[in-house]
């Protein structure tokens, strides 16, 4: 596999301007992704994961949302500088998205075959008939019989609908697939089926993927790299094996301590104290310092730099910069 850089996000900042103040959803976010690689974007509710994804597709609802600054390079081209009509040619074609809720992301009054064909006829020079034919092939690929292409979303179960969502996303063979919690609404046995399907298709199409999730188990299963997100920025980024064996940032450590693990006979969970900060009123310095057990005086004043502690393992925490100096 070639190690060619596909996506490079530099200092992305997205704010929502509301009557109650400015919500800093994404702050100075950096992330890069190679071709065919899967990165897991992990964080809790309100960490800014979905906003980041919408930012890449330039779909942040405006108003109230606004991309304040930063650059998003896809294949070397800055998406922020594109016009709306140029973006339309990219969405669903080079970059596509699978949404969280398969119950609401499909159009209830259009047969699923047509919904898949719509993407194809938008981006490729094909007749309506050819588009429908290709849509049926896509359905077969995701494990739904072509004869069901005339059926409507309500005739399918949640897992099947998410398969349709995947077929739509992959119809134009995108270079980058953004999956926004694609299995959160599904039962575990169905989730296992859908994840297996995604893993197989990703290999077949050699698609790079950003997997947004709050479930570290899913990350362990299908990602290559992991980015842990907290209050709008990535606090730790590493290779999957590195991060799971050797988590550094206090928030990552806390996240692992909060998960009841069916493999260990542990007694008490070690939760992170307190709550996620209000994104319209972020604490000064490191946004995690009010909940951090190892926070010192410095943490409230300085926004920690992103430090490479070796092996492409990045941590945004003053504890690690100190270690390097000593």
């Amino acid at each position: 596999m070639s190690k060619e850089k596909l996506l490079d996000i530099e200092k992305l900042t997205i704010h929502y301007v509301t009557d109650d103040g400015v919500v800093c959803a994404v702050n100075d976010l950096n992330l890069s992704l190679d071709r065919g690689e899967t990165v897991g974007l992990v964080g809790e509710t309100g960490a800014g994961k979905t906003t980041t994804a919408l930012g890449i597709l330039r779909l942040v609802p405006n108003p109230p949302g606004k991309i304040i600054g930063g650059k998003i390079f896809l294949d070397g081209e800055n998406l922020i500088a594109k016009t709306e009509s140029e973006m339309r040619k990219i969405r669903g074609n080079k970059v596509s998205m699978i949404f969280q809720d398969p119950m609401t992301s499909l159009n209830p009054v259009i047969p699923i075959g047509e919904q898949i064909a719509e993407v194809i006829s938008l981006h490729e020079r094909v007749t309506a008939k050819e588009a429908l034919k290709k849509a049926e092939e896509m359905l077969e690929k995701v494990g739904i019989g072509a004869e069901r292409s005339k059926e409507f979303p309500h005739q399918f179960s949640g897992g099947m609908r998410q398969r349709v969502g995947i077929a739509i996303a992959l119809a134009c063979n995108p270079e980058l697939l953004i999956a926004d919690e694609p299995t959160t609404a599904l039962d575990v046995t169905i989730q296992a089926q859908v994840l297996e399907l995604m893993r197989g298709l990703k290999k077949e199409f050699n698609t790079a993927m950003i997997m947004i999730t709050h479930d570290l188990g899913i990350v362990a299963k299908i990602c290559d790299k992991v980015a842990i997100m907290y209050a709008g920025s990535i606090v730790e980024f590493a290779d999957k094996y590195d991060l799971f064996k050797n988590p550094k940032h206090p928030y990552t450590v806390g996240l692992f301590g909060s998960i009841p693990n069916i493999k260990n006979d542990d007694d008490t969970l070690k939760p992170i104290m307190g709550l996620m900060p209000d994104p319209s009123n972020l604490p000064s310095g490191c946004p995690f310092h009010p909940r951090c057990e190892q926070a010192g005086a410095e943490c409230a004043q300085v926004v920690p730099a992103n430090v490479d502690i070796g092996n492409n393992h990045f941590v945004k925490c003053v504890l690690f910069r100190k270690q390097e100096v000593e």
């Binding site: 039962d187 046995t189 990350v219 362990a220 799971f244």
Partner: peptide, 25 residues
């Protein structure tokens, strides 16, 4: 057995043999 093997475990060394159930409930 199937339910247990379907749970994604947050451990990268886990290479359990997975049982994938067919179809829906």
């Amino acid at each position: 057995k199937a339910l247990l093997s379907a749970i994604p475990i947050p451990n990268v060394d886990d290479d359990l043999e997975r049982i994938l159930l067919e179809g829906d409930v």
